[in-house]
Write a protein that binds this DNA or RNA. Structure first.
Lengths: 109, 109
DNA sequence: AATTTATATCGCAATATTACGATAGATAAT
DNA sequence: ATTATCTATCGTAATATTGCGATATAAATT
């Protein structure tokens, strides 16, 4: 096997898992933190600042972009990445609902 | 290759990625939702309710437990799982800080 | 003690991810 | 037009994940 059985889960469960998966790598967390800090981020800066090869950074950016979390705009030779606002707020709301639905440790085992 | 270069990232980045990764599967989202709903959850119930084999459910539970997100208590023959409150709140706070640090779409590309 | 019930672990096959060198493509500078 | 610069893609090796049957373990029941 090796492939997730997406068909037995809800659309919501699959989407949430996909978004979390896109973020679930230290390099991609670092990329997002860097974008959040200066609101914008040239791809080449990430290659200089993180300790990964250019091809690897490009691949991580692609995953974040495919998940819809960031967007890239061509600026001459370089590419400027920033947060995709709608998806960001969607995920923020979904996670907030998810985490706040925890009722505390009563009746726990 | 194939192994994440954890040594070039901060402790915080690695921990956040690890926690998100533990949640980044539809089955594990479903398991957490089930636990959140009734505050508690017997392993066997998950096997009945989700459409996955017992060995697979057990493996997913192990990953959530290893990440520290849930805890399991033996209750006779069966095992009762519930949220690990401290880790839950830690992750909730970390994510809240992370998502709310987004300053909006000004100066974006 | 033997049996039933519930969960964990092992071993394996299929697939996915991570990382990077090499190379391609596209715009800017000379 | 040629060269330099920046990013994306291809191909590949190493490792990780997913799913499950088979089996082990451990408590409860008979």
């Amino acid at each position: 096997m090796g492939l997730t059985k997406t068909e037995i889960f809800t659309e919501e469960q699959n989407q949430m898992a996909a978004l979390l998966k896109a973020m679930a790598h230290p390099a991609r967390i670092a990329i997002l933190q860097r974008i959040l800090k200066s609101n914008t981020c040239i791809c080449g800066d990430l290659v200089d600042e993180l300790g990964l090869a250019q091809a690897t950074i490009s691949q991580h950016l692609k995953e974040l972009k495919n998940a819809g979390i960031i967007q890239g705009t061509i600026e001459g030779v370089s590419v400027c990445y920033c947060i995709e606002p709608k998806m960001w707020k969607l995920l923020q709301n979904q996670l907030e609902g998810f985490f706040s639905s925890y009722k505390g440790e009563q009746n726990c085992c």
